[in-house]
Structure formats: C-alpha cells, structure tokens
C-alpha cells in the first residue's frame, strides 16, 4: 500500500476546500464536529448563512471563554453568538427548512460513501449506541449534500466504496465528496474525479478507492493553503 501520510490534506485543508465552493447567500447546514470548520474559511465577499437544526439561522462565531450563554448554542452544543440578522425558531420550523428543501447545502462527515451517493454516517452497526440526530433529515432534503472525509479509514480501507456495508443514513443523496486526497462528484451512479492532490498518480488514487473513478474532462490539482496543513 502506498504511504499517503505526507500528501494527504489536513481536516482544516479539506474544510477550506469545501468552503471555496459555497456561493454568496447560500443557506448552509454544517454537521457537528469536523464540518463545523467550514465556517472558518469562507472566502472574502462570499457570505453564507448558516442554519443550525436546534433553531438558529445566521449566527456568529464562538464567544470568548467565559462569555458563553448556554441558551445560545449550535447543534454540537457549543456556544455561539448573535449577529445582526440572527433569527430563532422552534424545531418543527427548523426541520421545515430542512425537509422543505430550503437549504442549499448540507455538509456532513461519513463512515462510507457509495458510488451511487448512498451515505453511511450514523451507526457502525457493530453494537455501538446509534445516534442519528438530524442527519437523515438533512441528507434527503438539502439541495446539495457534501461529505468531508478522510479518503481511507485509519486501517487504510477505502471509505469511498462500491456499496455501503454499514447502515445507511440516506439513499443516493451525496452529490460531492471532499476527501483528504480528492474532490469527487457523484453523477449517474459513478464517482467522477474532479481534483486530486499532487504527487498521487491516478492508479494510486484508484487503488485507495473502492469503486471505479471516472473522469469527465480535466482532473485539476487539489491545492490548499500550506499553513493549514
């Protein structure tokens, strides 16, 4: 197996890359944990409006330690702040925004993504206590579903697979994957490679991917700010 330690992107770099694609004015839900980092890297002049499923739209950054108000948190139970334009609403309205197709983009983590866009990210199916939160609602209903993930598991197994072996969160829902090695769209039941890190051949990337990588036009270099490495 090839050693990707030195060429793979950091989580911050993956989040940075995903942030570059978010258009000005987009309504976006960021999953708890890793995807929350996307908010840090919004490009100048592109202002997304973030939704958190516990009932806040268009919130500000984390407060300074000691300034937290625990009635003002995000879905990850972390303290957030108000900003001009913030609104509050109850959970049924929050998921009307989700289920009604009003979100432009949801960004989530993944255990596995299949070539047809199936996503597994809520239960390993191995006896852990399952916890789905809002993921099943988000993946069926936001206009675009982006996944941020390492390209392979800690053991080196592909996370981009032919068919998910873990319990599904949603069927045919993922539209784009930002992995630690590549940017891949899911189109017509195929992985379509758009960008890959430099220093990794097509053959090597394919060997780390559990289903065929298709191309449709140029494959661009996936480059991210070095200081985020």
């Amino acid at each position: 197996m090839i050693d990707i330690t030195d060429i793979k992107l950091s989580n911050a770099q993956i989040a940075w890359r995903a942030a570059q694609d978010i258009e000005d004015g987009a309504y976006v839900n960021l999953g708890i944990g890793f995807p929350e980092m996307v908010a840090r890297f919004q490009p100048e002049g592109k202002q997304a409006i973030f939704h958190t499923e516990n009932g806040v739209l268009d919130f500000g950054k984390a407060p300074a330690p000691g300034d937290e108000d625990w009635d003002l948190i995000n879905a990850g139970k972390k303290a957030i702040t108000l900003k001009p334009g913030t609104s509050f609403f109850h959970h049924a309205d929050s998921f009307a925004m989700v289920r009604g197709g009003h979100l432009d983009l949801a960004v989530l983590g993944a255990y596995q993504v299949a070539q047809n866009g199936d996503l597994a990210n809520w239960s390993t199916g191995k006896g852990d206590i399952p916890a789905v939160g809002g993921a099943m609602d988000l993946v069926q209903s936001a206009k675009r579903i982006a996944v941020l993930t390492d390209h392979v598991t800690k053991k080196g197994d592909p996370k981009l697979v032919a068919t998910c072996t873990m319990p599904l969160t949603g069927v045919g829902c993922v539209t784009r994957v930002y992995s630690s090695l590549a940017v891949i769209d899911i189109e017509n039941g195929h992985f379509v490679l758009r960008e890959k890190v430099t220093g990794l051949s097509m053959d090597d990337l394919q060997s780390l991917t559990g289903a065929p990588l298709h191309t449709d036009g140029d494959v661009f270099d996936l480059t991210c700010p070095e200081e985020l490495a």
């Binding site: 109850h90 959970h91 929050s94 998921f95 916890a131 939160g133 993921a135 099943m136 609602d137």
Partner: peptide, 15 residues
Amino acid sequence: ALEIVPQGTLAERIR
C-alpha cells in the same frame, strides 16, 4: 429501551 428517531421526524411527530 431506546427508540432512535431522526431529529426532524421526532419534531414533526410531536407537532
């Protein structure tokens, strides 16, 4: 015993 319900479904079932 645990019944897991997706969050939006939980909210809508209550609504």
